[in-house]
């Protein structure tokens, strides 16, 4: 997770104590991903264990500061120049899974299912847009971070709506050509091991 790297990048700007680090993280991400203080300290413990940060003696107000080490600094530099590569294995998308199963079941009104989902996603999109509207144009620096994060959520919700539209159209076509029949349980005994045939794995590699 990039929380670890985010913390390092902040600490690279100057040593912080736990609550201070949390405040900095929130300020720079528009408080979009709230972290509890336990998560902060467990992450800091791991960073310390890996030699990426060092802990100072408590100061007068009992604050223990965490300072970045040269190794930590290098890791930040590396993080910033490396693209984030998402796993090529299909992420477990709840909605894709629900739809994939639902179309194999008899008596499910898929159009209604898609429409209900589209409404829910649009509501989410409206809510995000409202928040964005209220937030202005992203003048100040922390507002700008927040706008970027909210835009990311908006584009994800939009992509979901487009995928739903697309799925609905596909389904209508498949039904018209008799390709969307429910799938009864396969009574031939399931073999152990991998299925002999089926879809191409998402990462595109051929199965052995």
């Amino acid at each position: 997770m990039s929380i670890r790297q985010s913390f390092l990048a902040i600490l690279d700007q100057g040593a912080c104590y736990g609550y201070q680090l949390r405040a900095e993280f929130d300020r720079r991400t528009g408080s979009t991903w709230p972290l509890n203080i336990g998560q902060i300290y467990s992450t800091l413990d791991r960073l310390e264990r890996d030699g990426l940060v060092e802990r100072t003696e408590a100061d007068d107000s009992d604050h223990v500061y965490y300072a970045i080490t040269p190794t930590g600094h290098d890791e930040v530099a590396q993080w910033l120049v490396s693209p984030v590569v998402r796993s090529t294995a299909a992420p477990r998308d709840e909605l894709a899974m629900k739809l994939a199963i639902a179309i194999t079941l008899p008596g499910v009104d898929i159009t209604a299912l898609i429409q209900a989902q589209r409404q829910a996603t649009l509501r989410n999109l409206q809510e995000l847009t409202r928040a964005k509207r209220a937030g202005g144009d992203g003048g100040a620096g922390d507002d700008l971070s927040w706008q970027l994060v909210i835009d990311s959520l908006i584009f994800q919700a939009e992509a979901e709506v487009r995928w739903l539209d697309h799925s609905e159209t596909r389904l209508v076509r498949a039904k018209a050509s008799g390709l969307a029949e429910p799938m009864p349980i396969d009574e031939t005994r399931a073999r152990r091991g991998r299925p002999a045939r089926g879809g191409v794995p998402i990462d595109g590699k051929a199965r052995a």
Binding site: G30, S31, T32, Q119, Q126, E127, A131
Partner: peptide
């Protein structure tokens, strides 16, 4: 699809 009441989706 009606606009939902503004809930706090997140702090911002």
């Amino acid at each position: 699809a009606q606009t939902p009441p503004v809930t706090t989706l997140f702090e911002g």
